[in-house]
């Protein structure tokens, strides 16, 4: 604790060593107001996100994409928006997909309702599990799963069943004999499961990443070295995907289509929270400079 000799602190001293709880309170108030009453904000799409969107959007009907969805409730704020936008795009493009998960055994139970709900939406071509997409479910062993998939995709998922038969016998896996037959592997994750893909995936299969913003720093190098076809970063990335969806299926031509969900919703509280942070940093600096000037503690 800083012991100040004089009984009365001036405002700069108070601000310099402000009790952190005041900052916390302001953050809670700002976020609460904007979560309840969100404001619509404009968007400028990130090129790395657009790169993945354009690649996936350019796929033809009936192409196959392998998805690894590793997010849990702990990164729901970012990953859910990304996942929903990805599902909408693939369904509208009629791209077949298979989803597996490495993070947690409960993930299939979390994402299946989301997929089914999106499949009911207009424009989603009434996607059916076992017909247009399959859930390969949970794999406990990250290492073995990724190498297994790379070595022999059919063998790796053949034990997983849909409606009493192996998922590799469903129409989804028709003509898919090797992972390189998949047009892309998309990993949606909030943890470092992506590293194994970099290590194991052979060069011919393309890899796309949807990650939390925190992971972008360490993964952008892989985008630069082209080990990734594109990278969708955090809630902003989800908002980018939603914006691109809305560009391809604009609201006036396709009035019933849902393009925007949590990506846009979380953008305005996020903006004001970040503004608060910048303001706090500025105030802290002014306080420090003022104190230095008045010869207080530096």
């Amino acid at each position: 604790m800083i012991q100040e000799p004089q009984t009365e602190k001036n405002i700069w001293q108070t601000l310099y060593a402000i009790d952190r709880r005041w900052l916390y309170l302001i953050l809670i108030i700002v976020v609460s107001i904007l979560v309840v009453n969100p404001i619509t904000v404009p968007n400028v799409v990130d090129p790395a996100a657009k790169s993945l969107y354009d690649y996936l959007s350019g796929l033809e009907e009936g192409d196959f994409v392998y998805i690894e969805s590793d997010w849990t409730n702990s990164t729901r704020g970012e990953s859910r928006g990304q996942f929903e936008a990805l599902m909408r795009l693939l369904m509208r493009k009629k791209v077949r997909f298979c989803i597996s998960t490495l993070g947690d055994p409960q993930i299939p139970d979390i994402i299946r309702p989301i997929i089914n709900q999106i499949a009911q939406e207009p424009g989603s071509n009434n996607y059916q599990e076992g017909q247009d997409w399959v859930m390969a479910g949970y794999f406990p062993n990250l290492e073995a799963h990724v190498s297994g998939l790379v070595n022999n995709i059919r063998n790796a998922v053949k034990d997983k069943q849909f409606a009493g038969k192996s998922i590799v016998d469903t129409p989804v896996f028709e003509g898919i004999n090797d992972l390189s037959d998949a047009k892309c592997v998309v990993v949606i994750t909030g943890s470092s499961t992506i590293n194994l893909w970099y290590e194991r995936l052979r060069a011919k299969t393309k890899l796309g990443l949807m990650c939390t913003a925190v992971m972008s720093g360490e993964n952008i190098p892989y985008y630069v070295s082209r080990q990734l076809v594109g990278i969708v970063i955090g809630a902003k990335g989800a908002f980018d995907f939603e914006t691109l969806l809305a560009e391809e299926w604009p609201a006036d031509e396709y009035p019933d289509y849902t393009n925007y969900t949590s990506g846009r919703r979380y953008m305005s509280p996020l903006f004001f929270a970040l503004m608060l942070l910048i303001l706090a940093v500025v105030v802290g600096n002014i306080a420090m400079i003022q104190l230095k000037k008045s010869g207080g503690r530096s």
Partner: peptide, 16 residues
């Protein structure tokens, strides 16, 4: 900079 975004979104999600 990139991390701050994630952390705030997680709190926003909890606030939601």
């Amino acid at each position: 900079g990139t991390t701050m975004m994630t952390r705030f979104v997680l709190f926003i999600d909890r606030a939601y």
